[in-house]
Amino acid sequence: MPTILLLILSNVFMTAAWYWHLRGGMDKPILLVILISWGLALVEYCLAVPANRIGYSGGWSAAQLKITQEAIALIIFGGFMVIFLGEPLHWRHAAAFLCIMAAVGFLFTGK
């Protein structure tokens, strides 16, 4: 469970680092945006690295850690896209998410 919680928190910071400037930050100088994003990414790394170490030492494979991170990233980004950026969800988003969930299922089957 610590692995999942840390991955969720790291993805919140990762999404913010990559996309915060798309709404209200487009007029800021690109160097400032990059520096702010690096700061956010530092927090993301400080959460993701322990998440992966804890998960790996707990018996998760690297592939399981990566696909779980991708699934969490899609959930976080979907919420960010709708709530922060005001973009609508479409059936294509659900279909893509289901494909990722199928990948998660494949990697955890038989574990």
Score class of each variant (00 low, 15 high):
Leu35Gln: 11
Phe97Tyr: 07
Ile72Asp: 03
Pro2Glu: 12
Leu22Ser: 00
Tyr19Met: 05
Ile8Cys: 06
Lys66Asn: 14
Cys99Tyr: 07
Gly110Arg: 10
Ile76Pro: 00
Asp27Asn: 12
Trp38Pro: 00
Thr15Gln: 01
Arg53Ile: 13
Ser57Val: 05
Leu40Thr: 04
Ala102Val: 02
Ile34Cys: 06
Ala96His: 03
Lys28Gly: 02
Ser57Lys: 12
Phe97Leu: 12
Trp38Val: 06
Leu47Cys: 06
Val12Pro: 01
Trp60Cys: 04
Met101Asn: 10
Leu74Tyr: 03
Ile4Thr: 08
Val49Tyr: 10
Met101Lys: 06
Leu98Ile: 15
Ala63Pro: 05
Arg92Val: 14
Met1Arg: 10
Gly58Trp: 04
His93Asn: 13
Gly78Asn: 03
Ala48Lys: 15
Ile75Tyr: 04
Ala71Thr: 06
Met14Cys: 13
Phe84Gly: 08
Asp27Ala: 14
Leu89Asn: 08
Met101Ile: 08
Lys111Gln: 15
Ala103Cys: 05
Gln69Trp: 13
Ser10Leu: 01
Lys111Cys: 10
Leu98Met: 14
Ser57Ala: 13
Ala103Asn: 02
Phe77Cys: 07
Pro29Arg: 08
Ile4His: 04
Ile30His: 06
Phe97Gly: 04
Ala73Ile: 07
Leu47Pro: 00
Ala62Tyr: 03
Met101Leu: 14
Asn11Trp: 06
Glu87Ser: 07
Arg53Leu: 14
Thr109Asp: 11
Phe84Ser: 11
Gly59Pro: 13
Gly55Pro: 07
Ala48Glu: 10
Ser10Pro: 00
Met81Ser: 15
Phe77Trp: 10
Leu32Gln: 09
Gly79Pro: 02
Ile34Arg: 14
Ala62Leu: 12
His90Met: 11
Met81Pro: 00
Leu7His: 12
Ile30Met: 07
Glu87Leu: 15
Pro88Glu: 13
Trp91Ala: 15
Gly105Val: 09
